[in-house]
Design a protein around this nucleic acid. Structure first.
Lengths: 202, 202
DNA sequence: GTCTATAGCCTGATAGAC
DNA sequence: GTCTATCAGGCTATAGAC
């Protein structure tokens, strides 16, 4: 492990390269499918040198996940209680869809973890994620009671946004296999926008 | 490998037990995460005996996937060109959601495979799946042109159905972490039904 | 700080007795 | 057909030279 002194430029660069390479490999292969050899080679380091920066494979995985979780919930946090209800929700949907397009590896890393039972992040889900969702669904319920958007189950509304948007990153291969040459992100934004306008119109 | 003679009752039972155990383990851990030890123990056999029935880990995985794909597309096939358009689509959605509730392991096995780039079934996707979806979207487009349901992008409509319904199996842990004690499948059917009624109302 | 070499474990697969 | 024993390869992690 690097010393406790302030990291040099080289250490910063190497740590960043490792996290970038690990995101690549873990998101494509899952935790057990990934090997340190793959990560080291993708980061341009030797395997022992990789383990000089992180004590174990597990530690690398946790570091990548931690960095992901830090920003993963930002789009949801950004829903503004003082904004226009429908526009706030539609903006959230757009942000989530954009993340699927711009950060598909992050989405797949997360998906890998959840599909396999979230062994490493279940606590984060039932604590941080739950309390954030509770807060936002309360807000959404208020909007619904005020008649500013249609009444639907607020939690399932959130689940639907997650599934519809993340699907384009997580199931990318399948979508492209079916669509052929057409870019999924050409028509997806308009489709999903229409879907939520019709669902939530007061 | 068992002889070419007709399988005995014991052979049938063991093969079935292996496929059942393999579905359990592969869907929960992915291909590389699963071990022959786990499968053998879950099937109540020794590891060498397991490999008496299947020549390799890869062969077991393919057998499980093949059995899955055989029935996975049935709900889509069952859309009836002569039925009422909206009701046909809603019935398809219900069948898919029911599969997520009754066969979550199958859904997660599939998800594991796709998220990691579908290395073993990409050909099936761009051949069998694509041609089936092409056929059904053509039908849906006809219905839309006739004004019997609203006009939306037919492929993305199908993707949305896949994502919304499979999400309840694939992201089960996350959904339960957020919902707490409430059973996801209590409110999901009504929510999704409402969603598609409002989206597709002519 | 980075490398080569290697320890030690786990895993897929095989050999051979019964 | 099923078992015990075991091999061979790949994997994480460490030792030690430079």
């Amino acid at each position: 492990m690097p010393s406790n002194r302030a990291p040099t430029r080289i250490q910063k660069k190497n740590r960043a390269a490792i996290l970038e390479a690990a995101l690549d490999v873990f998101s494509a292969q899952g935790f057990r499918g990934a090997t340190l050899d793959q990560i080291a080679s993708a980061a341009g380091l030797s395997k022992p040198n990789l383990l000089y920066y992180f004590p174990s494979k597990e530690a690398i995985h946790q570091a990548v996940l931690a960095r992901l979780l830090d920003t993963w919930l930002d789009p949801l946090r950004a829903i503004d209680p003082d904004g226009d209800p429908l526009e706030e929700i539609l903006a959230y949907v757009r942000r989530k869809l954009q993340m699927s397009r711009d950060y598909p590896r992050e989405s797949r890393l997360f998906a890998n973890e959840i599909v396999q039972g979230a062994p490493r992040i279940e606590p984060v889900l039932s604590r941080d994620l739950k309390s954030l969702v509770d807060e936002k669904t309360t807000l959404i319920e208020t909007w619904m009671r005020q008649g500013r958007i249609a009444q639907v189950h607020p939690y399932h509304l959130v689940f639907s946004i997650w599934s519809l948007t993340q699907h384009y990153a997580d199931f990318d291969v399948q979508i492209r296999a079916v669509l052929g040459d057409e870019d999924p992100f050409d028509a997806a934004p308009a489709f999903i926008d229409t879907l939520y306008r019709r669902l939530l119109a007061p």
